[in-house]
Design a protein around this nucleic acid. Structure first.
Length: 330
DNA sequence: GGCCGACCTGTGAG
DNA sequence: ACTCACAGGTCGG
């Protein structure tokens, strides 16, 4: 069991902030206190392994990791955590563009936007509408245990990992069972979107959206049932390389209206309900302010707002090692 | 174009 | 104990 090291200080990559800030829902702390997840290998050639088990931990100066299979592990980690992005420079650029962001940048150094597998990202965010984090995580974990493949290496550090279920499995998933997982009305969207993704060409079609311009990729996603502006932008930002995609959820909307749109004639006095026009306006405003990496600024705003509302404490509790979570379902 | 309400359901504030 | 609104939205009328 070889442990590799990467010389990366906390301000470059902070695992906890990055992994619990609400962009990925499947990472867990194992018995030894390492973050671990069975990650899909996007566009894996047929015959090759479709998943890689990643365990990762850090102290002040270094990041330690193990991957199974080991071959290709470093490249996978660099890609997933987007270690090519110079985060300290980006943070100081954000600070110069808007001192409002200083608190969030200071509170969460090393928070990075991830580059996730598009299929996992899409179906994960289909679980999020009007749901608190415990429901999102619980539903996704249950989907993986019911329809995902268990890790070939079996239990590692007290956890039996499962891969994220591929679309062809979700397309045939049982609606009543998914609702039992706490997914409620989201279940139908998951199954119907899975069917439509397959009809469009499956995972290859989805990851192919990476090479389209942002507006085209977003429009393609929004043809899927249950995918509106917000979820489409989540998939664009967290998995399709669209760094200027801005998911405008209820938190971002409140921040924007409170902080940026209070001037007379601004959205502050606009329509009562949250309209698509307002969605576009807020996204454009943040893009104008923060530039081509505006999606990253959005993530700082979002997570900092959760922190200020006191949700942070209960969020971290969700990630403690949980022996229950390693048992196979039903 | 804007403005409802419905959609599932566990949780926590009152 | 027991409501009751709420939670990273979306869709149709």
């Amino acid at each position: 069991m070889l442990v590799h090291t990467l010389f990366y200080p906390l301000p470059e990559l902070h695992l906890e902030h990055t992994l619990i800030c609400g962009q990925a829902f499947r990472w867990k702390l194992d018995k030894e206190g390492w973050w671990s997840c069975l990650l899909p290998i996007t566009d894996a050639p047929s015959g090759a392994a479709r998943h890689r088990l990643v365990r990762i931990w850090q102290d002040r100066e270094q990041v330690y990791y193990q991957t199974f299979p080991q071959q290709g592990g470093l490249a996978h980690i660099r890609d997933y955590f987007r270690l090519d992005v110079d985060l300290p420079s980006l943070a100081s650029d954000f600070h110069a563009r808007d001192p409002h962001l200083a608190d969030a940048l200071h509170a969460f150094p090393g928070l990075r936007v991830l580059r996730q597998d598009p299929e996992e990202c899409l179906f994960s965010f289909l679980c999020t509408p009007a749901a608190p984090l415990y429901r999102i995580r619980g539903g996704i974990a249950a989907l993986c245990r019911a329809y995902g493949d268990p890790a070939p290496q079996g239990e590692v550090a007290g956890v039996l990992h499962h891969g994220f279920p591929p679309a062809h499995r979700l397309a045939e998933a049982s609606l009543p069972q998914m609702q039992k997982f706490g997914l409620g009305f989201r279940a139908k969207n998951i199954r119907e979107t899975a069917r439509q993704v397959l009809a469009n060409g499956g995972a290859v079609w989805l990851s192919g959206l990476r090479s389209l311009p942002y507006p085209d990729a977003k429009a393609a996603l929004m043809t899927l049932p249950g995918v509106g502006d917000k979820i489409a932008d989540c998939v664009c930002l967290f998995s399709l390389d669209k760094d200027d995609a801005i998911p405008v959820d209820t938190h971002i909307r409140q921040i924007a209206q409170r902080r940026y749109l209070t001037s007379p004639g601004g959205l502050g006095q606009g329509p009562k309900t949250f309209t698509r026009k307002a969605y576009i306006q807020i996204g454009d405003l943040l893009r104008e302010r923060f530039g081509p990496m505006a999606g990253w600024a959005q993530q700082y705003l979002f997570y900092h707002d959760l922190y200020e509302k006191g949700a942070w404490g209960s969020y971290t509790a969700l990630y403690k090692y949980d022996a229950e979570a390693v048992r196979p379902l039903q």
